[in-house]
Design a protein around this nucleic acid. Structure first.
Lengths: 155, 155
DNA sequence: ACTATAATGAGAGCGAGTCTTATTTCCAAC
DNA sequence: GTTGGAAATAAGACTCGCTCTCATTATAGT
């Protein structure tokens, strides 16, 4: 029961680490303890977080190393950066490590949360975007749909 | 003929300036020559541009003044800032000065272009987003749909 | 174990953007 | 017109998120 749930979670996290390890190895990067700590912090958060968030979760890490490793993880397709104006960037797992989703961005406190569109809607959006891209001679790789407004806490 | 076309364009730009002036006045800001130059640069570009772009179009402007005025224009609802990771922010007219649209963002050269979805698609996307926002206790103000990939020049 | 290669950590360095302050411009009242 | 007060400007100092450098340390592969 409780034991099983813990076991399950450990397995899921174990799978995550394995997938990350494979992604890193594909680019000739090593999966070091520091990188594992970053991945743990991202997994624990369950939403996009900033460098200070990561340092708060793993104070033993050197800021410069975290920046470098986030860059390595981004290059390996493990994490994705979300740019914020005049503030810290946010980081979260990239697809396919995390299922396709979009962002709720609070224009007051800056927090970013994930949300999913149902498959039908997602397909329609995607085909609409593909069409628009084709007309513009654009080769699309991915799309992002962000909702800007006030989160439950700031409303 | 040619004269008429020029006249028409001048009228459109005149309307733009008038609208901007009203927006600024509503926030007790003045519509100065420097701010007008920025608005002209944005109008001439017809797509999101950066501070260096604005300075290239209007070298007589002081960078600090342009930054300050972009901030004023953003506060007045005239322009909108588009954050870019580790690079200059992009600026363009906000709605309703420019019709609702989305962005094609080249992940190679960084250029940003506008595109429109047809009204039907836009409505569907919007209702889908509203529903998702409601579930999360989020109060949405606006949405952004960006397509990331390679532009015609970089493909 | 040995060696080549990658990763780390501390701090210097970079650059986009903001703040400060003295000066100038604008508008309105007289 | 002149004058007085409020807003805008310009130049540069400054902040801060982030990257680079480099000496040191850890990690494979042989």
């Amino acid at each position: 029961m409780t034991g099983d749930r813990v076991r399950d979670r450990a397995d899921v996290v174990g799978d995550l680490h394995e997938e990350v390890g494979v992604s890193l190895a594909r680019c000739d990067y090593r999966y070091t303890a520091g990188r594992r700590r970053i991945v743990d912090a991202l997994a624990d958060a369950g939403k996009p977080i900033t460098l200070p968030d990561i340092l708060a979760a793993a104070p033993e890490l050197a800021p410069s190393s975290v920046y470098r490793n986030l860059d390595v993880l981004e290059r390996s397709g493990v994490v994705q950066r979300i740019a914020a104006a005049g503030a810290h960037s946010f980081f979260e797992f990239a697809e396919p490590l995390i299922s396709h989703h979009h962002h709720l961005i609070c224009i007051d406190c800056g927090i970013i949360e994930d949300f999913r569109l149902d498959d039908d809607m997602e397909r329609r959006v995607d085909s609409g975007l593909l069409e628009a891209a084709g007309k513009a001679g654009f080769t699309p790789l991915r799309h992002s749909v962000d909702l800007h407004g006030y989160c439950a806490a700031c409303a």
